[in-house]
Amino acid sequence: MLLDSMEAIDSDRIAALVDYGADYADYLVCALLPEDAQALDDSFTRITAI
């Protein structure tokens, strides 16, 4: 599952959506702004761009 262009949603709702999606998708990829990514649990693997 790919989630992109989520900056219109607040960080708490993004985190809830990612937690929900992680239960149903084998792979979940999210393109997030750094401040939104901070709301996610540390158990998620992160890849950052330079």
Results as ranks from 00 to 15, higher is better:
L33M: 13
T48H: 12
A31M: 13
Y27G: 03
L33F: 09
E7H: 09
L2E: 03
Y27E: 10
I14D: 01
R13W: 12
I47V: 15
L3W: 04
A31R: 11
E7D: 13
T48S: 08
D10S: 05
S5T: 05
S11L: 03
E7K: 07
S5A: 12
Y27V: 09
A25E: 11
D42E: 14
A37S: 11
V29S: 03
A39M: 10
A16P: 04
I50L: 14
I47Y: 15
D10A: 04
A31C: 13
D42A: 13
M6F: 08
L40W: 03
R46A: 10
M1K: 05
D41S: 09
D4V: 04
A22H: 06
D26Y: 07
G21N: 14
L3C: 06
V29P: 02
T45L: 11
L33Y: 12
D42I: 03
C30M: 01
M6H: 03
A37L: 05
I50N: 15
L3G: 01
P34F: 01
A37R: 08
Q38N: 10
A8D: 14
A37T: 04
D41R: 15
A25T: 08
P34E: 06
Y27F: 12
D23Q: 15
Y24H: 13
D36H: 15
T48R: 15
A22E: 02
A25C: 12
T45S: 13
G21I: 00
D12A: 09
I9R: 05
R13K: 10
L33Q: 13
C30G: 01
E7N: 12
M6A: 09
V18E: 01
Y20P: 01
D36G: 01
L33P: 02
S11N: 11
D36I: 02
Q38I: 12
D41T: 08
S11D: 13
P34T: 01
R46Q: 12
E35I: 05
Y27M: 05
A25V: 06
L40R: 00
A15R: 06
T48G: 03
M1L: 08
V29C: 06
D12I: 11
I9C: 07
D10Y: 05
R13P: 00
L17S: 05
Y24C: 03
V18Y: 01
D26N: 13
D19C: 00
G21E: 05
S43E: 14
I14K: 07
D12F: 14
D10N: 06
L3P: 00
I47F: 14
D10L: 04
L2D: 02
A25N: 12
G21A: 09
F44N: 02
D26R: 15
F44L: 00
M6N: 03
I47W: 14
A16C: 07
S43T: 14
I47K: 11
Q38Y: 11
I14P: 00
Y20Q: 13
S43L: 13
Y20S: 10
A16F: 10
F44H: 15
E35H: 15
D23I: 04
A25F: 11
I50F: 15
A39E: 08
A37H: 07
A49S: 11
D41K: 14
